[in-house]
Amino acid sequence: MTTVAPEEIARRLEKFREALAREQIDLAIVRTPVNLLYLSGSIQDGHLIISPEREPLYLVWRVPERARSESPIEVWSIKSFKELPHLIALADLPSPRRLGLEFRLPHSQILLYQRLFPQAEICDISHSLRLLRACKSPWELERLRQAGKQLAEVVAEVPRILREGMTELELAAELEARLRRRGHPGYLRMHGWNQEIHFGHILFGPSGTVSAYVNMPSGGYGPNYALPHGAGWQRLRRQEPLSIDLAGCVEGYMVDQTRLFALEGLPSKALAAYDLVEEIMHMVEEHLRPGEFCEAIYHLALKRIEASPWAEGFMGLGSAKVSFLGHGIGLEIDEYPFLAKSSPFVLEAGMVVAVEPKIHLPDIGLVGLEDTFVVTEAGPERLTLSERGPKIIPI
């Protein structure tokens, strides 16, 4: 079984302890799966106790035996919330004056912690953890590169799979099976509240312009009203855009990529729109460097699109238009930073960003491109490797 390298966990814990010290938080309790995974190497259900000056302790309810095999951190068994103050004291950890919790926890759980530690001021550590995860280590980047290769291998098989009349769901099933055989877990984590996604969006023709409840530039009908986005029952026809937006995933680390395909050809309007999408992508790439302001990059792209005939459909139609051009990605599909209106972020070396300029063409479909990059001092490194440009499949 693969595990996170102990030295990688030690590096992350050291940086998080520094953040706690800066914010004068004397004890943090980490509970959400993605942050448990990041800081301990395990997502077994429990309380990861971290203080700025003491060794961490992982109090696991279910399943402590697995946690011990997955994490280099000391693991104790816990049976009930009520044991927390006693076990913290037994481990010689401080009784908190300022207690850090993730405010993504259910309110009922935060109230439980307040009752257990009535003397403590409750502070949010979610933002600090997201900032910490934004810059990837060499260990993490290796997983992301593997995810890019995984995805490229599968997308390369698309021309052999496509056939006129197949449904979006049929193509999605073919591609998802190939990803699973290459180790994809079949699950994508999202941070956004009430946001859900499966493998991605496979959209044929006009279904690519259908908006959905997810905060993304593409939507689609989905299979039915219970999951109304992504691949559905639309059938593939000649000379219409086929948008394949998928995430590769290796050991929880994701990259995001969109490529455009078509049977026999594309309308001239779609080809012209794609040329602009690729121009914007190249423009953005030039600015994916440390010290660049994310909001400025977004407005640079917006200025270019507003001077074109395609502004109305850029990143959505009408009220469904999204106000971002790109997003951080890693253990979650929507990490820091965001290339967006009012974004406060400045790019740093090690940040990983998915850039996705997309144009909605009413009655035609979605024309877009997406690639994932790591920001480096020497310029961006592209992690998604599939060939760009519309791929026209002859019949």
Rank of each mutant, 00 (worst) to 15 (best):
M1Y: 10
V4G: 12
V4D: 14
P6S: 02
F16T: 05
A19C: 05
L20T: 03
R22A: 13
Q24G: 08
L27Y: 14
G41T: 06
S42P: 04
L48H: 03
P52W: 09
E55D: 14
E55N: 15
Y58G: 05
L59F: 11
W61F: 14
R66G: 15
A67Y: 10
A67S: 06
S69P: 04
S69W: 09
I73S: 15
V75K: 11
E83A: 15
P85D: 00
H86C: 08
L93E: 10
L93I: 10
P94C: 12
S95D: 07
G100F: 14
E102Q: 13
R104T: 08
L105Q: 01
L105A: 01
P106G: 03
Q109W: 05
R115H: 05
L116A: 04
P118T: 02
E121G: 00
E121Q: 01
I122H: 00
I125H: 07
H127S: 08
R133S: 12
R133T: 09
S137G: 12
W139Q: 06
L141H: 07
R143G: 04
L144R: 02
K149R: 08
Q150I: 00
V155L: 11
A156M: 04
V158A: 03
R160P: 02
R160S: 09
L162H: 00
E164L: 07
E168L: 03
E174R: 01
R178I: 00
R182I: 06
R182L: 11
G186C: 14
L188S: 11
R189W: 15
I197M: 11
H201S: 07
S207L: 13
G208A: 10
S211C: 10
V214A: 13
M216D: 05
P217A: 02
S218Q: 15
A226I: 11
H229L: 14
Q234D: 11
E240K: 04
E240D: 00
D245A: 11
V250H: 04
G252A: 03
V255N: 03
D256K: 09
R259V: 03
L263N: 14
G265P: 07
L271A: 12
L271M: 12
L276Q: 06
V277Q: 06
H282I: 11
V284G: 08
E285M: 13
H287I: 04
G291N: 04
G291Q: 02
F293H: 13
I297S: 14
I297Y: 12
Y298F: 13
H299K: 14
A301I: 08
K303L: 15
S308M: 06
G313W: 02
G313R: 01
L317F: 02
L325T: 01
H327D: 09
L331P: 11
D334I: 13
D334W: 13
E335F: 05
P337G: 09
K341A: 13
V346K: 07
L347I: 04
G350N: 03
E356R: 09
I359K: 06
I359G: 09
L361A: 04
P362Q: 00
L366V: 03
L366W: 01
E370Q: 04
T372Q: 11
G379S: 10
R388D: 04
G389K: 10
P394H: 03
